[in-house]
Computed example of a mutant assay.
Amino acid sequence: MRRKDREITDPEKIRAVIGECSVCRLGLADGKRVYVVPVNFGHVEQEGHHVLYFHGAKEGRKMDLIRQNGYAAFELDTGYRLQGGEKACDYTAAFRSVIGEGSVREVTDPAEKEEGLTAIMRQSTGRDQWTYGPAMLAEVCVCRLDVETLACKEHL
Rank of each mutant, 00 (worst) to 15 (best):
A94Y: 13
H49D: 14
A94P: 15
F95R: 02
V44F: 05
D90S: 05
R61L: 15
Y80C: 05
N69Q: 10
Q46W: 15
F54D: 09
G85W: 04
V51K: 04
H50R: 02
N69D: 08
A88P: 00
R81L: 07
D64F: 00
Q46D: 14
A88T: 12
E59F: 09
F41D: 15
G48I: 00
A93C: 13
H55G: 11
L52H: 02
E47S: 05
D90C: 04
Y91C: 08
H49N: 12
F95P: 06
A73M: 07
D77T: 13
K62E: 03
H49W: 07
Y80I: 15
V39A: 08
D90F: 07
L52P: 11
D77A: 12
Y71G: 13
K87E: 15
H55N: 10
Q83I: 10
T92A: 12
E75K: 01
K87H: 15
A57P: 02
N40F: 05
N40V: 04
F41K: 12
Q68D: 12
C89G: 09
Y80T: 14
Q46A: 08
E45D: 02
Q83W: 00
L76V: 03
V44Y: 10
G42E: 06
E59D: 11
A94N: 13
E59Q: 12
G48Y: 01
A72I: 03
A72T: 03
L52Y: 01
I66F: 08
E45G: 02
K62M: 06
E45V: 11
E59M: 09
G42P: 08
E75C: 11
Y80Q: 09
V51R: 07
G42D: 02
R81P: 02
K87L: 15
Y71S: 13
G70I: 02
Q46N: 07
Q46L: 10
H49Q: 15
T78C: 13
E75N: 10
A57M: 09
G70W: 08
E45K: 06
I66S: 06
A94K: 10
T78N: 07
A94F: 12
E75I: 10
K62T: 13
R67Y: 01
A93I: 05
G60R: 00
A57G: 14
G56R: 01
F74Y: 05
G60M: 02
K58Q: 13
F74W: 00
Q46Y: 12
N69F: 01
Q46V: 11
R61N: 08
K62P: 00
A73Q: 02
A72G: 03
A57Q: 07
Q68F: 00
G84K: 14
D90Q: 00
Y71M: 08
M63H: 04
G85C: 02
H43D: 04
E75P: 00
L65G: 00
R81I: 05
F74K: 11
Y80V: 15
Q68K: 15
F54A: 07
Q46T: 08
H50C: 06
